[in-house]
Amino acid sequence: MIPNTKPNTYREVIDCADIKPTIPGAAEAILKHSGVNINLCLHCRCCAGGCPFTAAMDYLPNQVIRLIQFDLIEEALQSKTIWTCVACNTCSAQCPMAIDIPAAMDTLRQLAIQHNIPIAEPNILAFHQLIKGSIERYGRTHKAEIMLRYKLKTRDYFSDMLTGLRMFVNHKLEVIPSRVNDRTALNNILSAHR
């Protein structure tokens, strides 16, 4: 048995009675989109034991996989877990079945966006979209602007003021963005993903 050293914030028992599958064949969809076969999972919980972020998750990584194996995809797509995952690969490096869990999470996040599922971590999605916006504008990420826009978007103006100031003083936040000059290929790529 895996000793549970983490605060028990995730659900130990999933009550499936009220959850109705709405997008059947989720495991196949993940296999098709990311090439990851989540049906290989034998729930040894190595991923859950290694994941550094379970404290901020509602389901453990393998529980998300279990939901999909039961075709309870909507519950998985509404979870915090799929957004909290930062793809550090700690889980997939430990997985005895070599399941690329972060790649499966990528698919789940994208399915949640596609199917207009309520996003459990809207600020994380907002951050990702700001990175995309920065790449659209400059071809590279411009941290100072991303941070300012994030503050405006989340209406959180005062936290981290001191940190921002320290970063600015130590030249960690550039005012002028570093950018791509020849945008021909970049525009080709971006135009397909507006």
Binding site: V86, H128, L190
Partner: peptide, 12 residues
């Protein structure tokens, strides 16, 4: 694409 783009758009 950093840690963000693969989360929201694999192809991009």
């Amino acid at each position: 694409g950093s840690s963000s783009i693969h989360c929201i758009d694999t192809n991009l």
